[in-house]
Design a binder for these strands. Sequence first.
DNA 1: GTCTATAAGTCGATAGAC
DNA 2: GTCTATCGACTTATAGAC
Lengths: 191, 191
Amino acid sequence: MSKLSRKEEIKNCAARLFRKKGFAATSVRDIAKEMGMEAPSLYNHISSKQEILDELLLEIGEAFVEGMDQIRTAPISSIQKLERLVGLHVSLTIEHTDAISLIPSEYVHLEGKAEQQYFKLREQYEKELRKIFRACIKEKAINEVNVDLAMFSMLSSLRWLYSWYSKNKKINSIALEQEMIKNLIDGIRVN
Amino acid sequence: MSKLSRKEEIKNCAARLFRKKGFAATSVRDIAKEMGMEAPSLYNHISSKQEILDELLLEIGEAFVEGMDQIRTAPISSIQKLERLVGLHVSLTIEHTDAISLIPSEYVHLEGKAEQQYFKLREQYEKELRKIFRACIKEKAINEVNVDLAMFSMLSSLRWLYSWYSKNKKINSIALEQEMIKNLIDGIRVN
DNA sequence: GTCTATAAGTCGATAGAC
DNA sequence: GTCTATCGACTTATAGAC
């Protein structure tokens, strides 16, 4: 683990607070207190509170798109891609638990250019995921489901995995991936 | 549809705004503006901004617990209870889309007594759901999954259904229920 | 039941000393 | 790079006229 810059420390600290109370309800003074300094001192490292949220969400968004790109170009079947995608969510959840937690709710506080970039990343990700789902159906690997609904349903579970993981950190990354593949792709009903 | 009291109008209005910007980022002035009145006038109908959130979340929480109670005491198999539970989420999502949207993220802004009541309702609901899952396993209707993880995974999808539904309102309630049962219980993989 | 005026506090951010 | 002091805007909520 490389030494964190002061700015990275602040961002990690802020991510933890944003997760707990939300971006809007977390003050710059709260972040400073958690860092053990006075609020104005933060501004030697950041330019605004908004910048912290922007960078946290864009970095995690880029990580998802990069992961998706590797999966997209891998020489494997579509259903294997879908399984690897579950693994991507599990890995990023374990590595960036606090930042991941901001995705479902705090993106609404993005503004201007950062907001545009974020939505672009999200669209890109969802577009590729939709392609994988359609290919799975074409290859008769998954049933003829309503693609958007099934995709949204799967993403919802994966986006909230951080919540379960925070209370169950002892689980092995690979075991968690396997269990989620069973839950989300195979289903739970005995057949 | 019965005529709404002024307070109910305000709560519906606030729910829509809380959903869009979050509770903390929505000001009393925002709510007043949406209602076509000045901010202080709201206080003839409500006692505080906090009260609005408290009531919105407690009412929807009570609706879930009541629905769960009917399912719990119904003379049906455990797996049928699980399926009816999906239906309960679908129904409440369609009837109270905005209020439902507050559950995943805005509960963190509850305080004091309302916070306690809300957590009590949530625990009650999750406890009953856990029982249903365990009974399903015992009856060999679902596989021997990690109960908490499978339960959380299912709930995450159901809690975020409002988001998909908002963009796809034309779907039939029963069709949506059937599709979600397939996604969440049967799985999507061809077998 | 709605308004204007305003209290009392918090917000993000800056100026400038050290 | 950290601090104290502070600005100006915004916050929830109340007082009191109509």
